[in-house]
């Protein structure tokens, strides 16, 4: 075999090793995170002993571990992975590093749906616990539908998607502001709480369903890795010359990304930063080949979200700082450090 081929194989091997080590670290951290919490009945050591099968758990301890901490941690992993994967794919298909899952206005649609449910009680489902989630999901799906329609137009460009997303954000934002203006104090508080983004809202059944959806959609994203490579590196003409249909690919990727985003934020509220930061951190570590970037972004997104949430619920326990806030506080400076450090190198 040629020397360059061997070097490339070695490079691939190193990158795969990095990916597996990252998965391992994230899994270990998830286990450790199960030990953190404000309950006096279940300290860190007891949690670890129960999880490792060294000690039997009481009913209350079991309830805390499996009905409170486990759904939250699984939601952090799945939600972070989905948003990061969506961000990476959207950046690639729109050829723009500033794009995040919130760029297309999906989150604004969800916020509008939530606001309509909270302020006007305008919902599709009568079950109070699900009313906000259902509305948020429905309105984010309306945005996805607009994206599909937009993608069917022949003349639509990459920039059009971003500009339409900005327009949707402004329109939805204006309606939400109007609703806030007429809302009561209690409704305002509920709306603000929704917008912070929290992993404690979905219960175990919700999280398991979200996990099934995200895991089912993951291979579709991975399947488009070559197309994303061609689109992100050379633009539309270059992509066509390598056998990629840019219009069709962009449409399917954007719908997939928007759907992943909708599924997560309908339950958690606004968690945006991970979808921008995790793909860029992955690019610095593993490069821009989407065959590795998509899984790596998912792992980094999962870790980042879990780390932020764990810090948010232990730093000032029993006060819990919402994960959306924590992600921006700790992720922002770290993200800036990585980018500046890489540029200097």
């Amino acid at each position: 075999m040629h020397e360059i081929s061997l070097q490339q194989l070695q490079k691939n091997k190193t990158q795969m090793m990095t990916l597996f080590v990252s998965i391992g670290i994230t899994m270990i951290f998830a286990l450790v995170a199960m030990g953190f919490g404000s309950s006096k009945n279940l300290d860190f050591l007891t949690s670890m002993k129960i999880l490792l099968g060294i000690q039997e758990s009481t009913g209350l301890q079991s309830d805390i571990l499996w009905n409170l901490r486990f759904p939250r941690i699984l939601m952090a992993l799945v939600g972070g992975a989905a948003l990061a994967m969506a961000g990476a794919m959207m950046q690639g298909c729109l050829g723009n590093p500033l794009v995040s899952p919130l760029t297309l206005g999906v989150a604004s649609g969800a916020a509008l749906g939530a606001a309509l449910a909270i302020v006007l009680d305008l919902t599709l489902v009568s079950i109070p616990e699900l009313a906000i989630v259902a509305n948020a999901f429905l309105f984010s799906l309306i945005v996805v539908f607009i994206i599909i329609k937009l993608g069917s137009m022949r003349s639509v460009s990459k920039e059009s998607y971003i500009l339409i997303g900005i327009a949707i954000t402004f329109i939805a934002g204006a309606i939400v502001s109007t609703l806030q203006y007429f809302a009561t104090d209690a409704q305002l508080s509920q709306l603000a709480h929704w917008s912070f983004g929290s992993l404690s809202r979905p219960n175990l059944t919700n999280v398991l369903w979200i996990s099934v959806v995200v895991i089912t959609l993951f291979p579709s994203g991975l399947k488009s890795a070559w197309d994303l490579n061609a689109l992100s590196i050379g633009g539309d003409d270059f992509a066509i010359s390598t056998g990629v249909n840019p219009v069709k690919t962009r449409k399917s990727i954007l719908v997939l990304s928007a759907f992943l985003t909708s599924v997560v934020i309908a339950f958690t509220g606004l968690i945006g930063f991970v979808g921008l930061a995790a793909p860029h951190m992955s690019r610095l570590v593993i490069g821009n080949d989407y065959r590795k970037l998509i899984p790596c972004s998912a792992v980094f997104g999962a870790f980042l979200t879990l780390f932020a949430d764990t810090l948010g619920r232990t730093l000032f326990a029993p006060i819990v700082i919402p994960v959306g806030v924590m992600l921006s506080i700790i992720g922002g400076p770290f993200f800036m450090y990585l980018l500046l450090n890489n540029r200097g190198a």
Binding site: I4, G92, G95, S232, I233, G234, G235, G243, N288
Partner: peptide, 26 residues
């Protein structure tokens, strides 16, 4: 048919090997 555009500019970068590998995409 393979098309070589005048130039390409991108916000993202890859190694030369990976760019040339895109030729194997079809």
């Amino acid at each position: 048919i393979s098309y070589v555009p005048q130039s390409i500019s991108s916000q993202f970068s890859m190694s030369v090997f990976d760019v040339v590998m895109l030729g194997r995409r079809p």
